[in-house]
């Protein structure tokens, strides 16, 4: 199926360069797929594209979108950069945060700052492991998943307690403007912040330089190690932020609250057109990718498709989307 689709794209690509660039832009493809999914959903189950439904899907997507922001930065850093610990880190942040807050507004500031600092330390260790100890990111962050799981067990004795502060819950769930939940505005703010970080700051420029070609960046005087370490710190901090927002949504915390966010976060980044090899991509695509995945999941749920088929469809869609724009050069140049 995917080969056929690709052939059509190549034909379009031959016709005109400008048009082809738009059609082959991952963000455009992911956006079109998302709209198509919403239309299909409305056709098979009227009400799927209702205003309330769409707002709800966006709200669910926002937690994934925030977690995936950090993943985007880590993957952009290249060198096989990937953070498999984001789900556990998000869970840990939610657990620490809700224990500090105890459902009381007095603890809201500490309940947000302390978990994020903890996450920054975890990210720092990830970054040091990858750069100084030369552990491949995949296994370093995997090992960190085990360590954070261990920290959670030690910290909670196997039983999570505490609650999100009402202020946090209002911020996430409360209808602040136009009847939209506050978390959507937060997500837009975070999207602008991350995009600014990537496109307009020294860190962002260095990140792309390192991701595209580590050696060239190093020879050009870019502090490669510091940049990569900062990328992992950002990865964990955004994961923690996502976890805190999630606990604001659910109010009470569970021991595996955000564990399942790791894989969709990676998928969202890839669907959004960020190269797994690093150096190319951005946050807008990831945000669209998070929405695509959420809409796909809702559609499959609406269609009463069992979880087995749902995971199969998720995998096939990822490969199909990737075959539009993730292809590498031929060896025969």
């Amino acid at each position: 199926m995917s080969t056929v689709i690709h052939r059509e794209v190549s034909v379009v690509a031959d016709r005109s360069v400008g048009w082809a660039a738009v059609v082959r832009d991952p963000i455009v493809i992911a956006g079109v797929v998302t709209v198509a999914l919403v239309v299909v959903g409305e056709l098979v189950s009227p009400g799927f594209a209702g205003w309330g439904q769409i707002v709800n899907m966006l709200r669910v997507a926002s937690f994934l979108g925030v977690v995936a922001a950090g993943q985007t930065i880590v993957i952009l850093s290249g060198g096989g950069g990937i953070d498999l610990s984001v789900g556990k880190v998000a869970t840990f942040a939610a657990i620490v945060g809700s224990r500090i807050m105890q459902g009381d507004d007095a603890g809201v500031a500490a309940g947000i700052v302390v978990p994020l600092l903890v996450c920054a330390v975890i990210g720092l260790v990830n970054g040091l492991g990858v750069t100084m100890l030369r552990i491949p990111p995949f296994v370093m962050t995997l090992g960190m998943t085990g360590v954070v799981h261990g920290l959670i067990m030690v910290y909670t004795n196997g039983r999570a307690d505490g609650r999100a502060a009402p202020a946090l819950t209002t911020l996430v769930n409360g209808k602040i403007v136009l009847g939209l939940p506050g978390v959507l505005f937060l997500w837009v703010a975070i999207a602008i912040l991350v995009t600014w970080l990537l496109r307009r700051t020294t860190f962002g420029w260095r990140l792309f330089a390192v991701g595209a070609n580590t050696q060239a960046a190093e020879l050009s005087g870019v502090p490669v190690r510091r940049t990569v370490i900062l990328a992992y710190v950002a990865g964990s901090v955004f994961a923690g932020l996502g976890g805190l927002l999630l606990v604001g949504y659910t109010e009470s915390v569970m021991l595996n609250l955000a564990d399942d966010y790791t894989m969709p976060a990676i998928a969202a980044v890839i669907i959004g057109g960020t190269l797994a090899a690093g150096g190319v991509g951005g946050y807008l695509g990831t945000a669209v990718g998070a929405v695509t995945l959420t809409v796909l999941t809702s559609l499959l749920t609406t269609l009463n498709i069992g979880s087995a088929w749902r995971t199969i469809v998720n995998g096939v869609v990822l490969v199909a989307l990737l075959s539009f724009y993730g292809r590498q050069k031929r060896l025969r140049a």
Partner: peptide, 16 residues
Amino acid sequence: LLRLQPIIVTFATASV
């Protein structure tokens, strides 16, 4: 044949 990155392909086929 599709020349996709192994890490992402097998990540996707894992769910399949």
